[in-house]
Amino acid sequence: MKRFLTPFRSWLGIAPPLDLEFANRVECVIEHVEAGCGAEIVLAVEPWSGSYRDINYLVGAVCSFGVLIVILHSHIEVHPDWIPLELILVFVLGSALAHRTVLRRWLTTTSRRERQVQDAAKIAFLDGVIGTPARTGILIFWSRLEQRILAIADRGVERQMPGECWAKFLFELRQLQSVAEPQEGLLKAIQDLGTHLSRHVPIPAKHVRVLPNRPRGE
């Protein structure tokens, strides 16, 4: 059943949830990286960023309208008393379909999705990553619907790490966005980042790690 459902879900754009194995591997990689540097890395994975309720309603309305046209123009006899209920049902089903599939990506502009991902990443950063004692937190934010992976570094990392190294890391993340399953690439990018961090962000005296290594979100 799973073998049948997976390509169907992939076609609809329903991303399967990240498995436990990936979460464990991320935790190991981050632990290994943090052991050699003074930075703290957090990976946050979200199914989507921001609200797409307007798109859900739009799809529901269009489906509902389509069904109404079919009822009116086809030879199917439908009692008038049932029509409102059917329309409401189709509206709900259409909205639910939009909510779970890639329709939200198809029906929104790139700039809107970018903005929503950036806003969500900033909130996630302020929410939990900014509180490190040496301001050496790094957030890697992966929003799966929008296929965007962002990274935000705190002041301590910006101060110590050369801009070129950070830019290279951002570039690697950008390249991963066009990959359907970027998990492996993401792990490699974190390891590469660790190489630069160990060189430029040393472990300070009395270093206390406050952020968990397990991925957040899904």
Binding site: Y57, V78, P80
Partner: peptide
């Protein structure tokens, strides 16, 4: 963030026109 349908929201206008359209036709057909 909640998106509320304000009276001048495009979706609202579309719904209003659809209702106006179908109301007349429904009376004539069904």
């Amino acid at each position: 963030m909640m998106s509320t349908l304000k009276p001048r929201h495009p979706l609202y206008l579309l719904v209003v026109w659809c209702v106006l359209l179908t109301a007349g036709v429904v009376e004539a057909r069904v």
